[in-house]
Amino acid sequence: MKILVPIKRVPDPQTNIVVKPDGTGIVEDNVKFVINPFCEIALEEALRIKEAQGEGEVVLVSVGSTNSTEQLRTGLAMGADRAILVITDGMLDPARAAEVLEKLVEQESPELVILGKQSIDDDANQTGQLLAAALDWPQATFASKVEIAGQDVTVIREVDGGLETVAFSLPGIITSDLRLNEPRYASLPGIMKARKKELKEIPLADLGVSADPKVKQLKVEPPSKRESGKTVETVQELVELLHSEAKLI
């Protein structure tokens, strides 16, 4: 089966995010960039499906600047077969990213697209669902278990209040939650092989997708700071304060 996996370049989740004083974005100097953790999980799932079926192709896509080449190479080193980079000046909003992915699905005809549920930079949680709607495909978001038997896909989803199981027939869209799997590390032979794998670059204009955002960001600001207060010495003191001062118990 051919599986398309969109991956996004984002700041490492361990980094301390600092907003630029002029409010135009976040400080990127000295920030380490990685594959969005949810996309890594999506890729791992695609690789496992391919391995279980003993055949197929895993194609990576990233939409962004040429810097994203680094994350695509890492994905190839993990085991993806080839990669496509759609080159843009700035970052596209999820609506435009989904339009790009729609064009690539038309070109590549994958049976399954697995995305992350959320990018940890914009925290949008939209792209997979937008793509599914554009293609009129079924979707299973926030997946914590995926089973594929022939054309039938069954997915357990992490939802409010428990776990929901949905099923559909291919083609379809899955977005990964945190507990779907533990992504592998790229091995040294994997890294060597990745250098020779195809990485095709496509300028955004060639796909006829506009870069104008549907949601425009006017500015970003740091969140209001929360002051930390007292340290208490004993449990008695804590409960007493919660009772008399905060009036919460």
Binding site: D93, D123, Q126, K214, V215, Q217, V220, P222, P223
Partner: peptide, 27 residues
């Protein structure tokens, strides 16, 4: 267009939403 998980509506109609795990509030 869709604004995900807004945390405020400004008087001018613009919307506020947390990004980067709440470390950057976007208008």
């Amino acid at each position: 267009g869709m604004a995900s998980e807004i945390s405020d509506v400004n008087d001018d109609g613009s919307l506020v939403r947390p990004t980067y795990a709440g470390n950057a509030m976007a208008t």
